[in-house]
């Protein structure tokens, strides 16, 4: 079982203060890495034996922790309201989930998660030469969040159509803004006198 503290030590040796923090324990340990050293950190982790990139995703923290409505007065029977979480350092967090899998026995030798905070569309360097499935994963992050990856060509949409404008999983994209290719933008509502049959 790979020990996250040992991995922290190895990364500190390789990139110094580029790895900023280690949180969590065991399989849920998360290493936070700076944007400038992410490529080197992932190369070091791959060399340490993490042969499978399980997942690469992004989380948008715009508006995180802001509570628009006032907190209800504390009452023993109401569910516990948590204290407001700490403000995140940047807006987007890329999450790389790595697995060290022993092909002969089928057992996991360790898992580690690497978190990379980015503040704009310049995401990080592409890792599709380290793990080929990063190709589609990075395209998906670009498609839904607009985070770009340098060092690779061919960054195009994968789940949405090319005519789509915007990145829907960002927090400032309203869920019901529609961009249909054909057909009306909104279904006509019968109560407003709209006719549901399409024009002849």
């Amino acid at each position: 079982m790979k020990d996250p503290k040992a991995l922290l030590g190895v990364l500190r040796d390789a990139i110094g203060l580029g790895v900023t923090a280690l949180s969590g324990a065991g399989d849920d340990a998360v290493l936070s890495v700076e944007q400038a050293s992410i490529r080197r950190a992932l190369e070091v982790l791959k060399a340490q034996g993490f042969n499978v990139l399980v997942d690469l995703t992004c989380v948008d923290y715009l508006g995180y922790g802001k509570d628009e409505r006032p907190a209800p007065p504390s009452h023993p029977y109401l569910p516990q309201r948590w204290a407001s979480p700490p403000k995140p350092p940047h807006r987007f967090k890329l999450v790389y989930r790595l697995l060290d899998l022993d092909a002969a026995s089928g057992l996991e030798r360790g898992r580690i998660t690497v978190a990379l905070w980015v503040f704009d569309e310049r995401g990080g360097p592409s890792v599709r030469d380290l793990w080929p499935n990063a190709d589609w994963l990075e395209r998906e992050v670009w498609d839904l969040f607009g985070i770009g990856f340098t060092g690779r060509g061919d960054l195009r949409r994968i789940l949405l159509y090319p005519e789509f404008v915007g990145h829907p999983l960002r927090k400032d994209y309203p869920i019901d803004r529609r961009q249909p290719l054909i057909g009306p933008k909104e279904a006509p509502r019968p109560e407003e006198g709209g006719d549901l049959r399409p024009a002849p």
Binding site: D27, N51, V52, L53, V54, D55, L101, A103, S105, G106, L107, E108, W131, P132, N133
Partner: peptide, 24 residues
């Protein structure tokens, strides 16, 4: 298979006995 993060019956048919129910 491992490079592409393939799991499940595809990975097991390739010879790697990895099953999440056994490993975790």
């Amino acid at each position: 298979a491992l490079a592409y993060g393939v799991t499940g019956p595809l990975l097991r048919s390739a010879g790697v006995p990895y099953d999440v129910r056994r490993a975790r």
